[in-house]
Design a protein around this nucleic acid. Structure first.
Length: 257
DNA sequence: AGTACCACCTGACGGC
DNA sequence: TGCCGTCAGGTGGTAC
């Protein structure tokens, strides 16, 4: 479930485990995961270097290898594993370090991406990614909503508008802010806009904190009740299922307006 | 500008 | 046990 909180967790994991070790070998096990480079060129540019830092923007992770940056996107099933013994089943790229440890990028469905970029900021700019919600001030968030129409869910899902939320955290945010996923953006009151911003950031931060302890969202989160007909733990209403912006959407038919 | 639909890829799960 | 349809939390392209 790699949305912003999960990618933040991977970034911390990368920082904790994979920095300052010389890359002895790069093993591309499935070339379909690569972006702009072929296997040999990709490996050649990283071999002999070390990762010195890692950062995140939205759902994208960047790791500085000294003059070139590793760029990871986790798609729907991407993950990282640092290990010494056995590679995970769906390892697509494995970095072998000179201390005998390995870092695997795993991705069962191959929707992820492993690539190199010269400059993450330039990449963010060129690919048209919106601001990251954790560094976005309220005024900036409010201005994203100006002169826009359509369903609030569509807007929150759009990475070129705000980068990092996916289906799960959008549903969770709207649920906890008591806003219906199809609510037209231009119908939100300033109070609702404020609630949306505060709720979104609280949920993202809370998820990151809880991931660090190996936990997921609290039991009363919509996350644990994503099934049609479930009882809403907040108001006792009934959880509904719908398709919004092409994505399966769950919401409470009673308290989300 | 906003939305619907398809495609990419692989596995899990339920029904028969 | 095996086959088939359906679904999955992402993104990009096309068409209206």
């Amino acid at each position: 479930m790699p949305e912003l909180p999960e990618v933040e967790t991977y970034t911390r994991y990368f920082t904790r485990h994979a920095l300052d070790q010389k890359i002895a070998r790069v093993d591309v096990r499935d070339e379909r995961i690569l972006g702009t480079l072929r296997k040999d060129a990709f490996a050649r540019r990283l071999k002999g270097r070390s990762f010195v830092s890692a950062r995140r923007h939205g759902k994208h992770l960047f790791a500085d290898a000294g003059g070139v940056w590793l760029h990871l996107h986790f798609g729907m099933t991407g993950d990282l594993a640092y290990y010494r013994e056995e590679a995970p089943r769906f390892a697509r790229v494995v970095f072998d370090f000179d201390n005998g440890a390995h870092l695997a990028f795993e991705d069962m469905r191959l929707f992820g991406l492993v690539d190199l970029v010269d400059d993450p900021d330039a990449f963010i700019e060129e690919s048209g990614l919106g601001p990251d919600p954790l560094t976005l001030r309220f005024a900036g968030f409010a201005s994203l909503l100006e002169r826009r129409r359509g369903a609030i869910k569509s807007l929150l899902m759009a990475q070129e508008i705000i980068a990092g939320l996916g289906n799960l955290y959008v549903d969770e945010t709207l649920y906890q802010a008591s806003i219906h996923p199809r609510r037209p953006v231009d119908s939100l009151s300033s109070k609702e806009t404020r609630a949306l911003y505060d709720t979104m950031r609280r949920i993202l931060r809370e998820a990151i904190t809880r991931h660090a302890r190996g936990a997921d969202l609290p039991g009363n989160a919509l996350y644990h009740h994503r099934e049609e007909g479930e009882r809403c733990p907040r108001c006792g209403g009934t959880i509904q299922r719908a398709v919004v912006f092409g994505r399966t959407t769950y919401f409470c038919g009673r308290h989300q307006r």
